[in-house]
């Protein structure tokens, strides 16, 4: 086997390897968006109950991913869950933006949905989102439903 042929093939091999890694990075991991390359800023949001929200869950507004949850911890003083949101720099939100924890699909993963408010001033990096509503926890929901269902038949029975 001639040296030049071997060099050529090894060159092709290395180029294919680079192309494969590039493909994996761009096409499967979508590295260009939300990886911190084009700048992010942090916001915080406090929730009474985060349900099944996980780190790396998307933050969406109108269904568009505008950031990711990077950290979730319990605030020691208020005993509420404090989520750190890493937001894309190109999106700015008003100071009275509201955050709620939603579920994609019936059994899908949970994400944070944002609703823009009317305040002309925007949130700065490090600010906390004040208006939040908690995740729906299935057990609590069923509990409330059962309570309602138990009370309802009792009411007409009293009126007799």
């Amino acid at each position: 086997m001639k040296r030049a042929t071997i060099d050529l093939w090894v060159g092709i091999f290395a180029a294919l390897g680079c192309a494969a890694v590039l493909f994996l990075a761009l096409k499967t991991a979508n590295l260009t968006v939300g990886s911190g390359s084009n700048g992010t800023y942090s916001l915080y949001a406090e929730f009474d109950n985060i349900g099944g929200l996980k780190v790396k869950a998307p933050v969406k507004m109108a269904g568009v991913v505008v950031g990711r949850v990077t950290d979730i911890r319990l605030d020691n003083k208020s005993f509420r869950a404090r989520a750190t949101l890493e937001m894309d720099k190109q999106y700015q939100f008003s100071r009275d933006v509201s955050a709620e924890i939603l579920t994609s699909g019936l059994l899908g993963e949970q994400y944070i949905g944002l609703l823009q408010g009317g305040d002309p001033d925007n949130l700065a990096a490090g600010d906390t989102i004040k208006l939040t509503s908690s995740a729906l926890v299935l057990e609590q929901l069923i509990g409330k439903f059962m309570l309602n269902a138990a009370e309802k038949p009792a009411a007409p029975a009293d009126s007799h």
Partner: peptide
Amino acid sequence: FWSQMQNAVDWHTDIVNGL
């Protein structure tokens, strides 16, 4: 197919660790 994949796959945890 692709967007589900892109949501799930992370560059560092999945691809770099695999390499």
